[in-house]
């Protein structure tokens, strides 16, 4: 059985084809560049911020274009640019961590349901259906309001409420691959279940999940922004949502307090969505032909 390929022939070239198709999608590439820029800003926040976003100053509500504060200041005299750069840390951390945790959960549940089928599948999918009807945002609000916020708690809560979509996609992939020839061959060759799932099926089943990561990230960032807007973000960290919360009281005096963080959220979510679309088109050669 040594001659059995680990993956379907052409898996590697399929990915390089996809990357080629992705690169030719100018929108998606622009989105990726914006995401990378925010990532660099977030990681190097102390370098790029120019001032401490937690320390106010005497110059409150300065408009954009002011000498020391090019994006202006908020009601407490904090520099908006510094707040944006530090806020990016919160949004990107929550987005990435939530997407990874929820997709990992989804892959685990979807793989089990799809591989074993039958009763295991029935029970797990009922479970997934239940999590799907739970109102994600309102439930997250109430949980945070009752149990308290904090960055990691937010991540866990949003992730635990978000996994079913991935689970469904992975399950569907498993159902179609479970009986595939190369899986059957490996099974006859004496490979155990864990090996079959991780080494035979996963490499061929998980491309659609790549798209889900970007979409889950966008949705987590929107949820975090909403929680922050409701005043339920991590109280110790500046975030884009909490900036919009503060801005609500100053809409008439200081439009920039709302517009700057709002545009930041929009730019990240929009980028994630175009990257998701780009990945989807690139990984789906059939659609590419039709376009």
């Amino acid at each position: 059985m040594a001659a059995l390929p680990e993956t379907l022939p052409g898996q590697a070239s399929r990915l390089s084809d996809a990357w080629y198709a992705f690169r030719r999608n100018r929108r998606a590439v622009a989105g990726l560049v914006i995401l990378l820029t925010w990532t660099v800003l977030a990681i190097g926040a102390p370098l790029f911020a120019g001032s401490n976003p937690y320390r106010g100053g005497p110059d409150a509500l300065l408009p954009p274009g002011s000498p020391d504060h090019w994006l202006g200041t908020d009601n407490l005299g904090r520099d908006i640019w510094a707040e944006l750069v530090y806020g990016a840390r919160v949004s990107l951390t929550i987005g990435a961590a939530t997407a990874l945790v929820s997709v990992a959960l989804g892959i685990a549940v979807g793989s089990l349901a799809g591989y074993f089928g039958g009763r295991v599948d029935g029970v797990l999918m009922r479970f997934a259906e239940f999590f799907q009807v739970l109102p994600r945002f309102v439930l997250a609000l109430v949980i945070v309001a009752l149990f308290g916020g904090g960055l990691w708690k937010l991540i866990i809560v949003i992730a635990v409420l978000s996994w079913p979509q991935t689970a469904r996609v992975v399950r569907a992939q498993f159902l179609s691959l479970r009986e595939a020839g190369f899986v059957e061959a490996a099974r006859l060759g004496g490979m155990d279940t864990l090996g079959l799932i991780t080494r035979e099926i996963w490499p061929n089943a998980l491309t659609p999940v790549i798209v889900l990561v970007s979409l889950e990230m966008a949705s987590a960032i929107l949820i975090e922004a909403g929680l922050g807007f409701f005043g339920l973000g991590d109280p110790n960290l500046v975030s884009w949502g909490s900036m919009l919360n503060a801005a609500q009281g100053y809409l008439r005096q200081a439009w920039w307090m709302a517009v700057m963080p709002g545009l930041a959220i929009l730019s990240v979510v929009l980028s994630l969505n175009v990257v998701g679309d780009g990945l989807n088109d690139a990984l789906n050669p059939r659609l590419r032909e039709a376009a």
Partner: peptide, 22 residues
């Protein structure tokens, strides 16, 4: 559609207030 799908409702609300009310 892509823009509409990506903009948070509450931020859009604030923008609308700024433009049409303020």
């Amino acid at each position: 559609a892509l823009l509409g799908y990506s903009i948070p409702e509450f931020f859009l609300g604030q923008i609308l207030i700024l433009i049409f009310a303020v």
